[in-house]
């Protein structure tokens, strides 16, 4: 597994792309790795497209900005079009196939489609669609370990939000399970 990950996570504001970026960065920290999380900010956060860049590495991170991401997570179509193009050759493109019905015309990348909204709906909480995606992402990229993300979730979801912990843990698991199953069918 490579040590360096330069990840872009993008979607509509409200799809929770910032949160899953923070979970990856926090989990990396808990594993003693270096990490940075940098959001797009300003008016585009409300209603428009939001994205964040997460860098994880074994050594101190010089650049928190990334020109060619090693992984891209696209929760909606505009995000796939914008960031799918700059994804590194051989990199993973995760798309939310509940919302994106087209594919990107690139043969040199690994395209992973996950219907995260449908899966989240089955779990019983549409809001955890982002964490379903995170489960799938972690299963394939191994950027950080599941148990570190669980720990990060436990730190994040305190007080009134702690009721949501179970949904989130299930979402992680279901996302991972989905890609395991589809991989075994394909390959």
């Amino acid at each position: 597994m490579m040590a360096y990950h330069g990840i872009v996570i993008a979607g509509f504001g409200g799809q929770g792309v910032m949160l899953i970026g923070q979970l990856i960065a926090t989990a990396a920290m808990l594993e003693g790795k270096h990490s940075t999380w940098f959001p797009s900010y300003g008016p585009e956060m409300r209603g428009g497209t939001a994205n964040c860049t997460v860098v994880v590495d074994e050594k101190p991170i010089a650049s928190p900005v990334v020109e060619t991401p090693t992984e891209v997570v696209a929760m909606n179509y505009p995000s796939m079009m914008k960031f799918g193009k700059v994804l590194k050759s051989g990199g993973y493109l995760f798309i939310n196939s509940s919302m994106i019905h087209e594919t990107l015309d690139r043969k040199d990348i690994k395209l992973i489609s996950i219907p995260v909204n449908d899966i989240a709906d089955r779990i019983g909480n549409l809001k955890v669609a982002n964490v379903v995606m995170l489960g799938a992402f972690l299963e394939l990229t191994k950027t950080v370990e599941f148990k570190s993300v669980e720990e990060a979730l436990r730190e994040k979801l305190t007080g009134r939000k702690s009721a949501l912990l179970d949904y989130n843990l299930r979402a992680l698991e279901e996302g991972a399970k989905y890609v395991r199953k589809s991989m075994s069918t394909v390959g």
Partner: peptide, 10 residues
């Protein structure tokens, strides 16, 4: 700058 202000790091 805005990057130092907005980014998260350990």
């Amino acid at each position: 700058d805005g990057l130092i202000g907005q980014m998260m790091e350990p």
